[in-house]
Amino acid sequence: MSISPRVAMVAGETSGDLLAGLLIDGMQAHWPQLQSCGIGGPQMQRRGFEAWWPSEKLAVHGYSMEVLRRLRELLRIRKQLRERLLRDRPDVFIGVDAPDFNLGLEADLRAAGIKTVHFVCPSIWAWRADRVEKIRRSADHVLCIFPFEPELLAHHGIAATYVGHPLAGVIPMLPDRAAARAQLGLQDSDEVLAILPGSRSSEIQYIAQPFFEAAALVLKARPAIKLIVPAVPALRDRIVQIAHHCGLGGAVQIIAGQSHTVLAACDATLIASGTATLEAALFKRPMVIGYHMHPWSWWLMRRRQLQPWVGLPNILCREFVVPELIQDAATPQALCAAALDWLDARRSNPQKIAALERRFTALHESLQRNTPQLAADAIQKILAA
């Protein structure tokens, strides 16, 4: 291994880009002259990452039409990337989440003698238990973000290290609500509902309209409420169109990015299932988790689901601490009613809000580690082996 290793990485979509950016921070602390390249987004590129393709190319979801429409392009990208990495071999390849894309690539690279690391254990404890064998073939080591995962992987002969969840180290234990509101031009007395309809095009297609229709109903019940949407920049125009279609017009503030600022500022959030729900929990915010996907994708996912929960906060707390309205249950009326329950609780039942904040604080503490350093230490040991 060279003194400053050459690291190839693949991170898909916004959440993977964020996690990979934090990992690069840790590696650069070890190796200031680190070279990194592959597929990545703006967070990675700000840290000197050479993106051969943007991470948004991998932002697909589901088991059927959403993926099939892009399958040829994704397979072409993976083939070209594999050929390039086999020709110009990195010291280590790190696949960040995106298991459908990364695990197959890792298996090919590992078979060719390139060391491989997978960052973020696939959710074999929630669904897709059949992925265990694929992980064993693909990864020399797995960096886990939840504390129970290394023991689970060890039972299957897979080496793993718990490094904590990177977001738990980035998000403050006590978010500064006043500062966030000032940054967004909100008053301390404002009642604020955040709307996070997802970071993928397919999510916007299926869940944005029910969310905005629910928000319109909330607005009727509470005319003074402030509605704010932190939109993925590439999807902002489409989100604006859907909001106008739902009759919100100028009643909703749609900004590019700044999801952490919005979550710090809000009283409650309507939020699509995914990493963002964990971010909302780390900000200690009441939420209503909603999700909708292509019916065929939903049928396949339900068959593989191993737990009664879908949202990460509920999975990690092992109970329904926040409501989940999934697929046919995600109607505008139901989403509105659940959001109003949280908003009402802030006025009439503060004990309910305080209890949720205590649960989320305990969750935050369990996930808080020096993730960039622990991950970089594990990678260093793999390179030295």
Score class of each variant (00 low, 15 high):
117 V>E: 06
134 K>Y: 12
155 H>D: 14
115 K>H: 11
109 L>P: 04
148 F>Q: 07
160 A>D: 06
139 A>L: 12
134 K>N: 13
160 A>C: 10
105 L>M: 09
153 L>F: 03
120 V>E: 00
153 L>C: 09
112 A>Y: 02
116 T>A: 05
142 V>S: 10
153 L>W: 02
125 W>C: 10
144 C>A: 14
147 P>W: 06
152 L>F: 05
139 A>D: 09
124 I>D: 03
119 F>H: 15
107 A>M: 10
128 R>Q: 14
133 E>T: 14
143 L>N: 11
139 A>Q: 10
140 D>T: 08
137 R>M: 10
115 K>F: 00
151 E>T: 12
132 V>Y: 02
122 P>T: 00
108 D>R: 14
124 I>A: 06
136 R>Q: 14
112 A>H: 09
116 T>E: 03
153 L>M: 07
116 T>Y: 01
151 E>M: 09
121 C>R: 04
140 D>S: 13
157 G>F: 00
114 I>M: 04
139 A>K: 10
119 F>W: 10
149 E>K: 02
114 I>T: 12
123 S>W: 02
122 P>A: 03
108 D>I: 02
158 I>C: 12
160 A>N: 07
156 H>K: 07
138 S>E: 04
128 R>D: 13
140 D>N: 15
150 P>Y: 07
132 V>M: 12
152 L>M: 14
155 H>W: 05
119 F>Q: 10
131 R>F: 12
159 A>F: 00
126 A>L: 03
159 A>V: 01
132 V>Q: 00
